[in-house]
């Protein structure tokens, strides 16, 4: 018996972007019991190895599928829309302008004294609001993908859009991380230079 490497197949669930995470968790527990090492202690070495292998896929798969962003990134990669191999030409110029401006603003605020703190907090709220907007955009696109015929033009179009929304989300995430760092009193200065390289 061979173990499916594909997370969706391994969990035996439909290849959809919108998932019932409660049902996923239930399935995770079932499969955890099924592949638990204790049940293989009297089996052959080969079967024991297979159980270990299955447990690894199970854990990876659960971590990936329960998180909407990781799930989308996984599906995009599987469907031939890799995230990590994009060049700048795939990023819309308006997004770059926007991210650049947000970074400029953040840098200015960071250089200010303690009085800049309320502004930083404002900026953070602003970014979190942007991320919430992005997340509802994502949910809508998930639904669009799920409703389309697999491999159809509509499905591909939805994946394409999801990828650009995820790019935007990545930038915003970084900005939130940077604001948090700035708010985390003096933490940015204490950080050794080498670590940022």
């Amino acid at each position: 018996m061979s173990i499916p490497r594909d997370f969706y197949e391994f969990f035996g669930i439909e290849r959809r972007l919108t998932l019932d995470t409660g049902a996923l968790q239930k399935r995770f527990y079932e499969l955890s019991r099924q592949w638990h090492p204790d049940r293989f202690s009297r089996k052959s070495a080969e079967e024991q190895l297979q159980a270990l292998d299955a447990t690894a896929i199970l854990n990876d798969g659960y971590r990936t599928l329960r998180d909407p962003v990781k799930r989308a990134e996984y599906l995009l990669t599987e469907e031939g829309f890799p995230i990590g191999e994009q060049r700048s030409r795939d990023v819309p110029p308006e997004l770059l302008e926007e991210v650049f401006e947000l970074n400029m603003m953040l840098e200015e605020l960071k250089q200010g004294d303690a009085s800049a703190r309320p502004q930083l907090e404002n900026a953070r709220e602003n970014f979190v609001g942007l991320r919430m907007g992005i997340d509802s955009e994502l949910m809508a696109l998930f639904a669009k993908y799920d409703a389309a015929e697999p491999q159809s033009e509509t499905a591909k179009q939805a994946l394409h859009e999801i990828r650009s929304v995820l790019n935007r989300r990545r930038y915003i995430e970084n900005l939130i991380r940077d604001v948090d760092k700035a708010l985390d009193a003096g933490a940015a200065d204490a950080e050794p230079v080498e670590e940022r390289l």
Binding site: I83, S88, V91, L96, E97, F100, Y171
Partner: peptide
């Protein structure tokens, strides 16, 4: 103006 989405860099 260019950027690398995978690491969140933006360069002008």
């Amino acid at each position: 103006m260019v950027g690398a989405p995978e690491c969140g860099d933006v360069m002008k």
